[in-house]
Nucleic acid binder design. Structure first.
Length: 229
DNA sequence: CGCTTTTGACCAGCGC
DNA sequence: GCGCTGGTCAAAAGCG
C-alpha cells in the first residue's frame, strides 16, 4: 500500500521545487475517492487524523480549506496544499513562514476526535534559507494526479493565457485563469518530468463563485467534483 | 462572430 | 548592473 505514495515522494519532487521546511501529509476516506495512503515517506513523522473528522469533510478541498482558513485566521499567509495522485494530500506552509502544524492539528482536533485509520505526517525537510523578500501570495493548492488529460474537470471554467517551457522540464507549463468576471483564480498545469503520466495542477487564489459546470456534466464527472476550490 | 488557444514579446524578481 | 527565469500580455490564428 505504501509503494505508490512512497515512490511519489521519493521522486524528490518537493525538494526540487523549493519546498518548505516542513510539510504534512494525510489521506482520506475511500468514499472521498482517495484511497487510504497507509504510510508516509520514511522521513515523515506520522500522527493520526481522526477517521470521523475525515469522514465529516465533504471533500478533500473542504478539509484543505479548513486548514488554510485556520492558518489565515492566524494571519499566516501563503499556505499551500499538495495533493498527490489519488492517494494522498499534503498541506504545507510556504517557506516564507513557519508552518504551524500545531495549529493545524489544533484545528483538526477541535472538530472531533475518534478513529485511527488515517494518517497525518509532518517532515522537517531541509531546504534553502528563506528570505523575507517574497511577496505575499494567494493560497495555493497543488495536485499531482495520474491522468491522460492535462486539464482536469474541476467544475470551473478556465481560459488559457500562457504556456511556458520551464527549465529542467520536458513538458511545457500551461497557465489558466478562471473565466468568471472578478474571479482572479489561476492555475498552472504541467507534467512531471520524471513521470509524464503525472499531471501537476497548481491552483492559486480562491474562487468567489460556485462551480460553473453544467449540471449534466457534473453528474457524469461526479468523481472529480470533490475538487471544489 | 465570439470565444479560446497559440506564441513571441515583454516585464519583474532574483542571483551573481 | 546584467543575465536568467518564470509569469503575463496581447495580437493573430483556430474553432464551433
Amino acid at each position: 500500500m505504501a509503494s505508490t505514495s512512497q515512490a511519489m515522494l521519493n521522486q524528490g519532487l518537493f525538494e526540487e521545487q523549493e519546498m518548505p521546511t516542513q510539510m504534512g501529509f494525510f489521506s482520506f476516506a475511500p468514499h472521498l475517492n482517495f484511497p487510504q495512503l497507509g504510510s508516509c515517506h520514511q522521513s515523515l513523522k506520522s500522527f493520526t487524523i481522526p477517521h470521523s473528522l475525515v469522514a465529516d469533510a465533504p471533500s478533500t478541498a473542504n478539509l484543505a480549506e479548513t486548514l488554510i482558513s485556520s492558518a489565515a485566521a492566524k494571519q499566516r499567509e501563503d499556505v499551500t496544499a499538495y495533493l498527490g495522485g489519488p492517494h494522498l494530500l499534503s498541506l504545507q506552509r510556504s517557506s516564507a513562514n513557519l508552518w504551524a502544524w500545531g495549529e493545524v492539528n489544533e484545528c483538526l482536533s477541535s472538530k472531533r476526535s475518534g478513529g485511527d485509520d488515517h494518517h497525518l505526517g509532518v517532515s522537517a525537510m531541509k531546504m534553502k534559507k528563506i528570505k523575507a523578500r517574497r511577496k505575499v501570495r494567494e493560497p495555493r493548492f497543488c495536485f499531482k494526479t495520474m491522468s491522460d488529460v492535462d486539464v482536469l474537470d474541476d467544475g470551473y471554467k478556465w481560459r488559457k493565457y500562457g504556456q511556458k517551457v520551464v527549465k529542467n522540464t520536458l513538458h511545457p507549463r500551461s497557465y489558466y485563469r478562471c473565466t468568471q468576471d472578478n474571479c482572479r483564480v489561476k492555475k498552472r498545469v504541467e507534467r512531471l518530468a520524471e513521470d509524464p503520466r503525472m499531471v501537476i495542477t497548481t491552483y492559486e487564489g480562491r474562487h468567489v463563485h460556485s462551480p460553473s459546470h453544467d449540471l449534466e456534466d457534473s453528474q457524469a464527472n461526479s468523481q472529480l467534483n470533490n475538487f471544489f476550490f
